[in-house]
Computed example of a mutant assay.
Amino acid sequence: IAMENSTDPTAMNFILLGLFDYTKTHRVLFSLVFMTFIASLVGNILMILLIHTDPRLHTPMYFLLSQLSLMDLMLVSTIIPKMAANYLLNSRSISPAGCGSQIFLFLTLGGGECFLLSAMSYDRYVAICHPLRYHVLMSHKLCSQLVAGSWLLGGIDGLMQASAALSFPYCHSREIDHFFCEAPSLMRLVCADTTVFEFFMYICCILMLLIPLSLIVASYTLTTCSSHLVVVGMFYGTLMVIYMRPRSYQSVGHSKVVSAFYTIFTPVLNPLIYSVRNKDVKGAFRNWLGKTHAM
């Protein structure tokens, strides 16, 4: 009997095979990933609080940075808690609604971050190359529009791809060899022609990855922000490996490892890259510690 004809509602659920086994080595790796998740939560929440509470950080640059921290915070919260709960409870099931939510939120936040990073690179270019015209070229109104556009474009892409991915018939195994629901991994289970959808996904990647990346590379090359380029390269590079490489060339194990970089490790690196060498952020942190200690 096909799973679609089963009267058991849980039979319609997908099965996430996960990233780790229950060996000693994998338990250590899981612990490291979970600690990275906690560090990402703490780092990004702290960045948001500092930028919100310190008047010196109420500038377009830090407003964009706070939105980046918010996206990273939501991204890791979309993926890691479910993965951790499944591993600890030895339960691998996820409902179609839960799977669709992960696809939508991941693409909304990932796509939004692609556009937001390009907006941040434009901000740095203007600040360094046109400092006298900075407040004209990078007004608060334009900054708000760039942020709103990033969220909107990411949301449109997430809604379209999540709706399309879940509209296909899954008439064979519902086991997803991944640690979260990601559209390319879900396509391996489809028993229908996905050529049109994969072409559409490829076009979206060109618009949301290659074009923003080209702008970022051009602006950061002019302003020599090499440390930022490292994180940007990791984020965009790993996304392109998953979403722009033909499915026939993708190894399941390799895909999971690559996906771990932009869902687990990049969100914890962003607060470090954008704050450790930043005197304003370090000053705001010292003031916050002083006020906390005084209380």
Rank of each mutant, 00 (worst) to 15 (best):
H135E: 14
C99T: 05
G98M: 02
G112R: 02
R133T: 11
L137R: 08
G100N: 02
Q145M: 14
S95A: 08
S118K: 04
P131F: 09
R92K: 06
L132R: 13
K141D: 05
I128G: 07
Q102M: 03
Y134C: 11
P96T: 04
G110L: 10
G100C: 03
I103Q: 03
T108D: 11
V126C: 10
F104R: 02
L142W: 13
S95G: 01
V136M: 15
G111S: 13
L132I: 10
A119K: 04
M138N: 03
Q145K: 14
K141N: 11
G98S: 03
G98D: 06
I94N: 08
A148H: 08
S95T: 02
K141M: 11
P96K: 07
F115I: 07
L107F: 02
S118G: 05
P131W: 12
V136D: 13
S139C: 08
R124I: 09
Y122E: 14
A127C: 11
Q145D: 14
S101V: 07
L142S: 09
G111Q: 08
G111T: 12
H140S: 05
F104I: 11
S121G: 05
I103T: 01
L117R: 05
L109P: 00
C129Y: 10
C99D: 03
G112F: 06
C129A: 10
L105V: 00
C129I: 02
L146T: 01
Y122W: 13
C114Y: 02
